[in-house]
Structure formats: C-alpha cells, structure tokens
Design a protein around this nucleic acid. Structure first.
Lengths: 347, 347
DNA sequence: CCGCTTAACGAAAACGGTTTCGATAGTTGC
DNA sequence: GCAACTATCGAAACCGTTTTCGTTAAGCGG
C-alpha cells in the first residue's frame, strides 16, 4: 500500500534503476532528474523498504544485545550501558535489538544470528555455554562479550579492570590509615568476583597487613543481606574501621545500617562502594565509590562490533578499562573512634 | 555463504517450493520427504533468511521501543518495563528494538515505521510532537503510548492510575492520623505530576483538611534536591508528621536526611514513596510505597501492539492500571513526637 | 564529418524466501 | 475400465531494492 520505487518510476516515466540511483546519490544520474526524483519521493511519502534493502545488501545494520533476565542485575547493567551504546549505535547508523534468554535457551538468538537478523551480538550478564558461541565464532560472526573476561583468545571482550580497581580501593583505605578493612563478597565466585577479592587481598598483602577471614563477609544483592552483614561486622570483638562493598546498593544499605546502630560515617567507619549508581547519592554523606565506565563500555562494544562487521580487523580485541575513582563523603582517615563507639553503644 | 533453500533443494533433488513447504509444515508435502528435508536442513546448519521472509510477508515481527534519552529517568523506566515486555514479546514471537531520540529528531524512527522495519511502536518517556504521531496514526500504524495519557481518543495508551494512587497514599496517611502531610512535586507539571498533586489535594479536601502551601515543596531527581527539601520542611514552625515523596529515590534521600538530623522514621515522621524501586530497601526501615505495575505495563504494551498488528481490534485501547500498595516500615500512626523532637533537637 | 569519450539512463539479474496454480501420478468408486 | 479425487510436487510469480552491464545520445577534438 505504501508507495514503492516502481510507483515513483512510473510517475516520472523513469526506470526503477534510475530512481534508486537518484535516491542513493549515484553520480550516474543527472542533477535535474535527481532533484525531480527526490522531490516526488518526498511528496509521495516514500520510504524505502528496509527488508528489501537488507535482503539485497546482506546486512541489516542491527546489533543484538543479549542478556539473561534470570540474572538479577542484568537489566540494571543494561540500563547502565544503554546510553553509551545507543549513542554510539546512532552515530554508526545501527539499531539495537534486545534478546533475552532465561535459561540455557539460546536457540532463537542463534537463529537470529544465522538468519541474518542481526549483524553482530553483544553478550553480557549471561552464562553462555561455549557451544553456540564457538559455532558463531567459526562462522566469523561479530561477537563481543562484556563484563566478563573470556579465556578464549579468539573472542573479543571488554571488561573493567576489576582487579586494579579493587586493589586501588583497598590501597586507598590503607593510605587513609585503616588496618581492619572488611570486604563483602558475593556467594558465587565468578571471574569478576575473584578479581575483586584477589585485588583486595593483594593490596592487604602488599601493605604488609594480614587478611583476617572474619572481615570477609558474604553478601547477596537481596534487600536485607547487607544489613545482616553489617550487624555481623558490628558484632565482632574488634569491628572493622573501613568496609568495602562490592556494589553501591550494598554500600548504601551498609551506611544506613551503621548509622541506624549509632555509628557515624565516615567518622567512625568508612564505607566505599563499587559501580557508580545514582542510589549512592541518597545517603548522608554520599558514598565514595569506584565507577564502572558504563558510557565507555557501551560505546566500545558497539564500535568493536562495527569494526568486525566492516572487516577492518580480524583479530579479537581485548579491552580492559580502568575504573573511575569518585571520592565523596563516606570515607575519611582512620580514627580509633569506631572502637570507642562500639563500647559506648553498650556492647 | 550460509546454505540457502536452494542448496537444500538441489541436495535432495527437490524444488525450492517443496523445501519451503516442508520446513513450514504445510500439509501439502509427504511426511517422508518432510522429515528428509528437515533432517538435511538441520545437518547443513540451514537458517532461513529473516530479511527474505520479511520482504515476502510484509511483516518483521519487531516492535520498537522509543525513549528519549534526554529525559533523566527514561532509562530507568525502560529497565522497569523491560522484563515484562520482553517476556510478553518472546511469547508472541516478537523482537524488541530500541530507538532513542534526544531532541525533536524523530525522523529516523518515523523512517523505521514507514520503511517496515518495525510492525509497531511503544512510546514512553518522550515528548513527542503530535505531527509525526498523527501521520503514523493516519496510516493505521500500531502505536501505544505508555505512562502518559494522550487526550486524542484515537491513540492507545496505557497509564498507571496516578490520581487514584496518589489519593490512596494521602488517604492512607490521613487514616493513620496524620494531619500535616507534606508533598513533593516536580518542577515541570506534566499530566502525570498534575494527577499526583490533585490526587493528594483532593484526598486532603475530602477529609476536611486544609492544604497548606508550605507543605508542598518542589523537588528534582538530582542528588541533594530531596535533602534540601527535607531541611526546608524541618525548618518550618510546625513540621509535617508525614511526607509524601513522588519517587522512591526521593523518599530514600528524605529518610536518610531526617535520620541524619536526629528524627526517627517512622516514630517521628512517616515517609511514603512512589514507584517500587529496589533502592527503597536500602534504608532502615524499608520504605512504604505505591508500586507501579511495571510488569503489567510492559506486558500489556506488547499485547496491545500485537492485537493491533493482527487487526483484531481497530479501536484504541485506554488502559488504566491500579498501583500496588506495598506497606513497609517507614509509615506509622501519628504521634506528636515529631514536634517534641524538633524542640529537643534544639531549634 | 568521423572516431572516441562521457553522460545519462534502462533492462535484467540478483537477494532468498513464500505462495499460487497447475500438473502428474496414484487411488478410489461404481 | 473410466471418471473423479486425492496426494504430492514443481514452475513461476512475487516481495522491493540494489547493482551490473549494455545502450543511446551528446559532446569533442581534429
């Protein structure tokens, strides 16, 4: 029903070929007819069929974003990445299409890749079986994994330098004079979490500090988990004077828990977060954190896919991005007041 | 390079037509050959070209999500809606493709609709000019506006019942015995914000309470804005005993501000939020709120588009969804302790 | 005026499926 | 044995665009 290229051709008594070339700006066509074609095309409300063009070109200018909705923070991660990715995609004339998998069912995503529905795929927050991923790589399908380092040297990945960031965070607290530094971990030790933990432990070790196991508490993202961890730390005979949370939401809950129990932040206890969420500004004081370079991650992911599509670079790219230190008010130099406070609070 | 339908046909000495019909399960083809075709198709790793199929069918099974990245909460809103929308889309065999506009530049989205890149469009968090929207409606293009009531009776919309929710929230506080109830508004009064405010004012009026202008404070989503509003309220000669925040993040910051100043929540002041964000669990106590039915919104948006595509229903749908009351610990019956507390804090 | 280049355009072949409309062979009914 | 079906398959059109290649006419130098 909408006008197609033939309608324009008949209207102007031209051929489909000339109309197409006129619209696409080929030098092959006289300036006068080019303008005529474009004017009537605009007047008729013509819009080229994307499917037809894609079929002919063998490309779709679409990039898939794959996330596992079963993972709790997947959607949040997406929303962090999206602005950068969308901006980058728009600059390159690409569209973003979202694929969600719940379990191990990655079949329709695979079908989308093989069927030419998308030109490339950005994977994140997802436990992918290497099975289909290798299949795609064999076909030289543009693929980028985000937020997780894949050992396979053939697959491109872009991952924040969790180890370095974690090392810096703990070192920063040590430089402030803190010696009893608590650390919250997640139950499942993914590569990212391992990097976190070892960065922390190495920083302690390099500073000549011993790692007390009681200062490493397991925390989940569920509400109340951080509060429980906080109470656990406050109940220790010698409570830590600084706490490292693996996530800003944990840090926020931790600060509120400490304050609720009568501790002052940062005078009694320093708290430092990780991620760079808006929620870290809801506490008083605001929370010092290491921000993930979300904007850059999204931007780079699309760029890498784009390069792979263009075929400029065959080798896999391994981006390691630094985290950004964002110092706010929840950290301060060490004072022994925390311990005094603990006694004062009647333990 | 990937195998197409002709390769399979030649391999089996059949015609393209038979192969296509075999793969699509037409009754037209003998069970034996059907199985043969499917087996070799699978063996060859065949995957039908999406572009080719779409071109012939005149559909793409893709639904666009349009959001304005210039709006601060747009991405958050998307992430709230996404799980429900994605689930619903997957059930219906649709894909979601994200379009971002920054300013008034909605041209390429329009091109996507006209060019058959998507079958329908869900618009939200965006100030759309009616110009292109009406153009799409004239062409009977499936369109749904989310989170904002459009006066035009021809355009489908799905919007939470902000007025009723706001009315309920204030009535709930009144029933708890509160008389001095503060209300935070946003600077720009959109239809949603207006509904919020009038719901609040009507609830006050219906309870025979006068609306004190000093209890209505302007708040932005930026960090620190809620804290300023909180201080403003605490400085009043008679500070409110209950505070309604238009957003959970505002509520969180408000609670923390109150507690930081020595007030107890909910003993001295009740605070109630709005939205249903994860962040409302980071405070102690957790924040009572009215949850937006995000899951339902996303689900319905896709369903409506799907119905419009199928042509089942021509008339516009106007969904008004109730908000869900989620009572937590930040609200309690009125006691005059807030005022005593204010004196006690040495004002 | 003639060969040669160049400008401008059109015919037709892709791209890879789906769908219509026959065509053929086998089967059934009587 | 013949007519009427049915089951199974294939030829070809079609979806709308891009792109190659050929054709025509004009321009141009000599």
């Amino acid at each position: 029903m909408p006008p197609n290229i033939r309608d324009i051709a008949e209207q102007l008594d031209l051929s489909k070929a000339t109309v197409s070339k006129a619209l696409n700006g080929y030098a092959d066509v006289a300036p006068a007819t080019r303008d005529r074609v474009r004017q009537t095309a605009h007047a008729m409300g013509y819009q080229a069929s994307v499917s037809a063009r894609n079929l002919r070109r063998g490309q779709t200018d679409k990039i898939g974003l794959l996330l596992n909705t079963a993972v709790d923070y997947a959607v949040d991660y997406l929303s962090g990445i999206l602005p950068g990715a969308a901006r980058s995609a728009q600059n390159l004339g690409k569209n973003l299409i979202i694929y969600t998998i719940t379990d191990e069912d990655s079949t329709d995503v695979l079908a989308a890749c093989r069927g030419g529905e998308i030109d490339g795929l950005v994977m994140f927050s997802t436990n992918y079986d290497p099975e289909p991923m290798n299949a795609l790589l064999d076909e030289n399908f543009p693929l980028v994994v985000v937020g997780r380092d894949i050992l396979d040297p053939c697959v491109s990945s872009i991952v924040p330098d969790y180890y370095a960031g974690s090392y810096q965070a703990t070192s920063y607290l040590i430089e402030l004079g803190h010696r009893r530094i608590a650390f919250t971990t997640r139950p499942q030790l993914t590569t990212a979490n391992k990097a976190h933990l070892s960065g922390h432990l190495d920083a302690l070790h390099d500073a000549g500090l011993s790692a007390d196991q009681r200062y490493v508490v397991e925390t989940r993202l569920e509400p109340g988990s951080a509060a429980a961890a906080g109470r656990q730390l406050m109940a220790l005979p010698k409570m830590p004077t600084a706490i490292r949370a693996f996530h800003d939401l944990i840090a926020v809950e931790m600060v509120n828990t400490l304050q609720y129990s009568g501790y002052r932040v940062p005078e009694d206890v320093s708290v430092i977060g990780f991620d760079g969420l808006r929620a870290r500004f809801t506490t008083l004081p605001h929370i010092t954190t290491f921000k993930q370079p979300f904007e850059t991650i999204g931007k780079r992911a699309i760029e890498i896919i784009h390069q792979q599509i263009a075929g400029d670079r065959v080798a896999a790219v391994k981006d390691v991005l630094p985290l950004e230190f964002d110092e706010r008010g929840s950290t301060a130099p060490y004072r022994e007041s925390a311990q005094l406070r603990a006694h004062e609070l009647g333990k």
